[in-house]
Design a binder for these strands. Structure first.
Lengths: 368, 368
DNA sequence: CTGTTAGCGCATTCAG
DNA sequence: CTGAATGCGCTAACAG
């Protein structure tokens, strides 16, 4: 391994001079600069980042602590957004899968501390995530995807309440009345916010929330399966279901198919998170799309601005969702058993075929 | 920030002693051990990993250099497999998206060098990837997913040749005769190996490869679209297509749908990479599944064994693929225009409906 | 068993 | 403008 002193020796200068030309923040005789640069090249010298970090007392690295890269395409896209931002800014990035496990998350946050990273982008595993030690150590933190009530960190989230509300509004408008919800885990804000949106939409429409139509999954396929199985046992059966993420949707759709039910006639479905395959499904799946890549990239941008010295109060970036309407939520056909509430409005009979692929976008507050 | 000397001082011992109790590789008076451990706890002392790495002259970190986390579920699963292995072994991991770009890959490999990482798991961007500097520096390298002909590194790959051959065999057996191929980029072995498998299957069946039925994409959706558009212009049209990864399959399926063609009657399809949504597609998609997570995890295992001192010659782990048969490749119906070759065998008429979901597994050599 | 000493590779004083 | 000296926080020699 060739060090800075090797370069200094063969260039006939001191290590300090080499350091100066390498970092270019000090005046050095152009002649020496040339010599040093040539020697650096000849010897293939690469500064040792570990030594540099020790000396500088800060480490040019970020840590990204998320739940799981595998979670549908969503987190993978977020990761890529962050990685691009980190790369552009010249920071490598630790990838840490906390896996919804607070203790694993804690271990990774301690790592961030021990590595003295420049910043952390974090998807908190729950409300008890403790940012204190990081903040005390002067390590910048940006929350991505999930809020952490009570914390003072910058955060970037999608409009979960608005997106969910829009989805349920859409189902109501299309004539569905017993709308179920497969919600996420309540301890994370993506879980609770989407459920809030569902509730809000129903309440605003003057209908009350039927607790037996709300099931809570864990954002994974088996949870979606279980929840859907339970919902299908309800009598009367729900005529629609809003599913709060794509992995649960995959599980739920399998159950629906195995039960021999058809979308949307037997049951309408709207999922959360857009997927490439949505239009290619047996019945095109209506989804609430999130700008996952942007979410990651925006988090990176906020982190970078903090690292570069911005010290205003905590910023919250709210990203809009998109409702991608497909056949799985087409207007209801058949008789309406006016279950409750008003609004037996004139409803179009089965308008949208599988070919319909309208996309509406809406920017909305209310992220809470 | 509290350092080892702070601990030493308040415990009334030397820094060396603190270091010894922390690393536990030397005998220390139990009484002192207790004192030190309590002080460590009281002060919330966390050893500085950067300083430790500098002193030890090796960094307890891995670098994972892959093409793109977002590439379908495949790389995300690989990443997770690696991450789990790294976590279990107590190593954090840099995530580096080389993005099929040799120069970006080179930058990340230099980073690995400058960070003096303990090991690198790499999906080479092409044949010119240079492992030399890493090897010279004593940094262990494991190749994952793609081979690097000429290198001496351990590698973990799936049986791309065998998987592709099996897919095409399956299409042949089901009566398809003009079987097209949307191949990956030839500079990576996953691209070339799958194409080889396609060729082998045809040749073994005594049919020759029609170059106008082979298109090469870039493993992404737009490439799949373009390739499929070109293939559909061929006259006579191909009656089946083998698509070498899932993102290209998504693009290709959209084109097929837009053209108003039905699977498998107008054209049969087999894709590479299993996806959760495959059984839920309009026509269930037959896929060649790869054990992506295992691939990552196995790579981690090989890397760890090297780090722990194993120094035998290069190992190659070949992982089996699985053919997941669904409706998109159901036995051909309709007349056979005996295009060429023998084998106008008696073929069953449209056996498998959408409900069929048989799965065959086959272990096979020939990874080349 | 424990403390003292030395240095990992680098950037930054402080003199010159 | 440049070089010598200093120390980031830690562990490994070496004495004691």
């Amino acid at each position: 391994m060739t060090t800075i002193v090797d370069v200094a020796r063969t260039a006939g200068v001191s290590a300090a001079t080499v350091s100066r030309v390498l970092n270019g923040n000090s005046r050095v005789d152009p002649q020496l600069v040339a010599t040093v640069e040539r020697v650096v090249k000849d010897l293939g010298y690469r500064p040792n980042r570990v030594a540099r970090s020790l000396r500088l007392r800060h480490n040019r690295v970020w840590a990204l602590v998320i739940s799981d890269v595998r979670t549908g395409p969503f987190f993978a896209d977020v990761v890529r957004g962050v990685e691009d931002g980190a790369y552009e800014a010249g920071y490598p990035m630790f990838l840490c899968n906390a896996d919804e496990d607070p203790s694993k998350e804690a271990i990774y946050l301690q790592l961030a501390l021990a590595e003295n990273v420049a910043g952390v982008i974090l998807t908190p595993s729950g409300p008890s995530t403790d940012l204190g030690p990081l903040v005390d150590a002067g390590i910048h933190v940006v929350l991505a995807d999930r809020r952490l009530p009570g914390s003072q960190a910058d955060s970037v989230v999608t409009d979960n309440v608005g997106g969910a509300r829009q989805a349920v509004d859409h189902l109501l408008a299309n004539g569905y009345r017993r709308i179920a919800c497969i919600a996420g885990p309540p301890r994370v804000t993506t879980g609770s916010d989407r459920l809030s949106g569902y509730r809000l939409a129903l309440e605003e429409a003057g209908r009350k929330v039927n607790p037996s139509l709300v099931r809570s999954g864990d954002f994974r396929e088996p949870g979606g399966r279980r929840a859907m199985e339970e919902l299908l046992e309800q009598r009367p059966r729900p005529d629609a279901v809003f599913i709060c993420n794509n992995r649960m949707a995959a599980g739920a759709l399998q159950v629906i198919e195995e039960a021999g039910l058809a979308l949307p006639d037997d049951i309408a479905v709207v999922g959360f998170d857009e997927i490439v395959w949505a239009p290619l499904l047996r019945t095109g799946l209506t989804t609430v799309g999130q700008p996952a890549y942007d979410l990651g990239h925006e988090s990176a941008r906020l982190l970078l601005s903090r690292i570069q010295g911005y010290s205003g109060s905590a910023r919250t970036v709210l990203l809009p969702t998109t409702l991608n309407i497909r056949a799985s939520s087409a207007p209801r056909s058949g008789p309406l058993k006016a279950t409750a509430g008003p609004r037996p409005t004139g409803l179009p009979l089965r308008g949208a075929g599988p070919g319909r692929r309208a996309t509406r976008s809406r920017r909305s507050g209310g992220g809470g």
